[in-house]
Amino acid sequence: MEQGTVKWFNAEKGFGFIERENGDDVFVHFSAIQGDGFKSLDEGQAVTFDVEEGQRGPQAANVQKA
């Protein structure tokens, strides 16, 4: 798993971006967030995640709040 920081996340649209430790950004969809209840992330929040190849390039999977 990688570690990163939430760059931004739009809860209304259900997606955002995580900044990886290497400085690259990776797309995150709310469906990739682990846990119960409303799935959202806060700007600046530390997270761990896997990276999978999506239809439009790399995207975060198995996102967990650190």
Rank of each mutant, 00 (worst) to 15 (best):
M1D: 07
M1W: 09
M1T: 14
E2L: 12
E2S: 09
E2D: 10
E2A: 11
E2K: 14
E2G: 09
Q3T: 15
Q3G: 08
Q3H: 14
Q3R: 15
G4V: 01
G4E: 01
G4H: 01
G4P: 01
G4F: 00
G4N: 01
T5K: 14
T5N: 10
T5D: 04
V6R: 00
V6Y: 00
V6A: 03
V6D: 01
V6P: 00
V6E: 01
V6K: 01
K7E: 02
K7I: 06
K7C: 04
K7G: 03
W8E: 02
W8L: 03
W8N: 03
F9T: 03
F9N: 00
F9E: 01
F9K: 02
N10R: 09
N10K: 09
N10G: 04
N10W: 12
N10L: 08
A11H: 14
A11R: 15
E12N: 13
E12V: 14
K13F: 10
K13H: 10
K13T: 06
K13C: 07
K13I: 09
K13D: 04
K13V: 08
G14C: 03
G14E: 02
F15R: 02
F15W: 14
F15E: 03
F15I: 10
G16L: 01
G16F: 01
G16C: 02
G16D: 00
F17L: 05
F17A: 04
F17P: 00
F17I: 08
F17E: 03
I18E: 00
I18K: 00
I18S: 00
I18T: 01
I18D: 00
I18C: 02
I18N: 00
E19N: 11
E19M: 15
E19R: 15
E21Q: 10
N22Y: 13
N22I: 12
N22P: 08
G23A: 10
G23V: 05
G23T: 06
D24G: 12
D24F: 13
D24C: 08
D24P: 15
D24Y: 10
D25P: 10
V26Q: 02
V26E: 02
V26I: 14
F27N: 02
F27P: 03
F27A: 02
F27M: 03
F27W: 07
V28Y: 04
V28H: 00
V28W: 02
H29A: 03
H29R: 04
F30A: 07
F30Q: 06
F30W: 14
F30H: 09
F30M: 06
S31P: 03
S31H: 07
S31A: 08
A32D: 07
A32I: 03
A32P: 01
A32F: 04
A32R: 05
I33F: 06
I33V: 07
I33K: 01
I33D: 01
G35V: 08
G35Y: 08
G35N: 08
D36Q: 14
D36V: 13
D36H: 13
D36I: 09
D36S: 13
G37S: 08
K39H: 07
K39D: 05
K39E: 05
K39N: 06
S40L: 09
S40I: 10
S40V: 13
S40N: 08
L41F: 05
L41T: 03
L41I: 05
L41P: 02
L41S: 03
D42A: 10
D42R: 15
D42S: 14
D42I: 15
D42Q: 14
E43L: 13
E43Y: 15
E43T: 15
G44D: 05
G44L: 05
G44E: 04
Q45Y: 05
Q45V: 10
Q45L: 07
Q45I: 10
Q45D: 15
A46N: 10
V47S: 00
T48G: 05
T48M: 11
T48Q: 09
T48H: 07
F49R: 00
F49E: 00
F49G: 00
F49D: 00
F49I: 02
D50F: 14
D50K: 15
D50S: 15
D50A: 11
D50R: 14
D50C: 08
D50N: 15
D50M: 15
V51L: 11
V51A: 04
E52V: 15
E52F: 12
E52Y: 10
E52M: 12
E52T: 11
E52Q: 13
E52H: 13
E52K: 13
E53M: 13
E53F: 15
E53V: 14
E53S: 11
Q55W: 14
Q55K: 14
Q55I: 13
R56C: 08
R56D: 06
R56P: 06
R56S: 08
R56N: 11
G57N: 04
G57A: 05
G57V: 04
G57Q: 04
G57C: 04
G57R: 06
P58N: 07
P58C: 06
P58D: 06
P58L: 12
P58A: 10
P58G: 05
P58F: 10
Q59M: 09
Q59C: 07
A60Y: 00
A60S: 03
A61D: 04
A61F: 13
A61C: 08
A61G: 08
N62W: 06
N62A: 05
N62K: 08
N62I: 04
N62R: 10
N62F: 08
N62V: 04
V63W: 00
V63T: 03
V63S: 01
V63P: 01
V63R: 00
Q64C: 08
Q64K: 15
Q64H: 14
Q64A: 10
Q64W: 12
K65I: 14
K65E: 07
K65D: 08
K65Q: 10
K65R: 12
A66L: 15
A66Q: 13
A66P: 09
A66D: 11
